[in-house]
Design a binder for these strands. Sequence first.
DNA 1: TTACCTGTTAACTATCTTTTAACCAATGTT
DNA 2: AACATTGGTTAAAAGATAGTTAACAGGTAA
Lengths: 229, 229
Amino acid sequence: MQKKIKLLLAEDDLQLGFIIRDNLEEAGFEVINCPDGEQAWEYYQKKDPDLCLLDVNMPYKDGFTLARKIRQKNDVIPILFLTAKSLEEDKLKGFAAGADDYILKPFSMKELLSRIQVFLRRNKMLIKEAPDSYRIGNTVFVPAEFKLAGPDRELTLTLREKELLEFLCQHPDKVLKREDILLHVWGKNDFFLGRSMDVFMTRLRKHLAIEAGISIETIHGIGYRFTTV
Amino acid sequence: MQKKIKLLLAEDDLQLGFIIRDNLEEAGFEVINCPDGEQAWEYYQKKDPDLCLLDVNMPYKDGFTLARKIRQKNDVIPILFLTAKSLEEDKLKGFAAGADDYILKPFSMKELLSRIQVFLRRNKMLIKEAPDSYRIGNTVFVPAEFKLAGPDRELTLTLREKELLEFLCQHPDKVLKREDILLHVWGKNDFFLGRSMDVFMTRLRKHLAIEAGISIETIHGIGYRFTTV
DNA sequence: TTACCTGTTAACTATCTTTTAACCAATGTT
DNA sequence: AACATTGGTTAAAAGATAGTTAACAGGTAA
């Protein structure tokens, strides 16, 4: 699984915030939703998001102030304001604070998404969607179905088997660091999970043993490389 | 094109209302969005909607009052309450006012859509028409009649049995996630409904045990796959 | 009321997945 | 070569998930 793009959403209306977040997640983003500017600033520093959506009117630290603070640290991250006011004055104030765009409430999700895409594209961070099946020698792997099917067999993978194999398929012929695999498939990296991964590598190798020319190669001390013919 | 299904949405929070409407329209519904109960009542009479989504807290005429008024005129139209309060008292009051379901804010659009679909299906107003019978081995399943009939037997399914089996029949050979089944058949996804589903799976399996080659396969940790020969 | 019928909850059991542990093999370093 | 580190393999332990049966609650009909 490719690393998701992180959005920082600062919106004090909880219900609205939830539903915006829900829609954005549905669209494939990772969303950090903060109810006020103070928390948003905290999470900004902690999570290092790729794009910010800031409500202008928030308790504890309004959108303008927050934007200025973020701009001080990072002068390329796209900052989009969400606001109910259509005052020209506010708009100017917003751009002065470092905003890249200014979206009026109420907005449609379609509109929000397309504006987000514009800025991500500008920053070369477009999401590329994953193919829904991979050919591995004579075997076909369909992640959505947890299925690995060859001419003489068909088997259903478990969750981890599938996620791991999918990650390998997404990066053929590349050396994948143990750490990166762990972070992507397990979400964190510690010693025991590393050993767990070793077990799963053994399993995947068994599953793919039939396929000549396919290999999960060990790069000692570094990680693995998955090669298909 | 088939005539769109009309939803009456009464929501006083304009921003939230707009985005809910946007999502519902995206899903193919026609939506009438009213900011208060007074207007909602007006539009109810004028537009004759197929389903109502009412916010409980509204100026000029609260959701309960409105629901009662609508129920007086029409005792079949599905009425779903949207509310931030989780008070049991409110819930009872809601059902007493004639509500069919009670959706807590914040909710995900996925959940809202599923619950709407459940009630539309129940009222035979589904958007996409489904085949009116399925052949499962030597057995014939007629959803509209809740009937499962084979050479040597004929039995009447209950509502949930029928909805569940119908959902399975609509997606043969696909891995259906537990969550999706729950959202489609029950309208929401929580732990206990999940256990309820397990019970129904057992029942369906018993009903179909006669049929060799038919199986409801468990994909552990994910969901189920229904396969016919 | 009583007697069902349906769907949910509960309790117990069975099964499957993942992690942990133990031991061994390979690699790299001194 | 001796040692330490890293990874491979297998099996058992732990944990999570699902199957099954029965009791229960709420509603409906006789």
